[in-house]
């Protein structure tokens, strides 16, 4: 059972942005969906699944890639050939 406060917290973690007006509906829907997910409690075993696979790596050498202009083309905010982002500190 999740509460409106839980949903607000999850929205915060996910940087999703939520209106107080939406909280009731989301909470109600999450509880219905999570009730359905409870069927997984009947699954036997809880060891993390491992697979017999190995990572595929390539040599760390520069390969052709997009030009700076192409990379910047879709960025809404830029300055001096760099992408501008919101402040972190």
């Amino acid at each position: 059972m999740v509460t409106e406060k839980d949903v607000e917290h999850i929205a915060e973690l996910a940087d999703i942005g939520i209106n107080t007006g939406e909280l009731g509906t989301f909470t109600h829907q999450f509880n219905a969906i999570l009730d359905y997910f409870d069927v997984l409690d009947q699954v036997k075993g809880d060891t993390t699944v491992t697979r017999d696979l190995t990572n595929i790596m390539r040599e760390d050498v520069v390969e052709p890639s997009l030009s700076r202009d192409e990379v910047l083309k879709n960025a809404a905010a830029q300055e001096d050939g760099f992408i501008k982002a919101p402040r972190v500190m």
Binding site: D15, I16, N74, A75, A76, A77, A85, P86, R87
Partner: peptide
Amino acid sequence: VRYGPAADTKKSWHDAYKEVR
């Protein structure tokens, strides 16, 4: 930031991302 509608770069990152998303 890299694509899509602009994030408000004057805001703190959580606030800016929340708004865009």
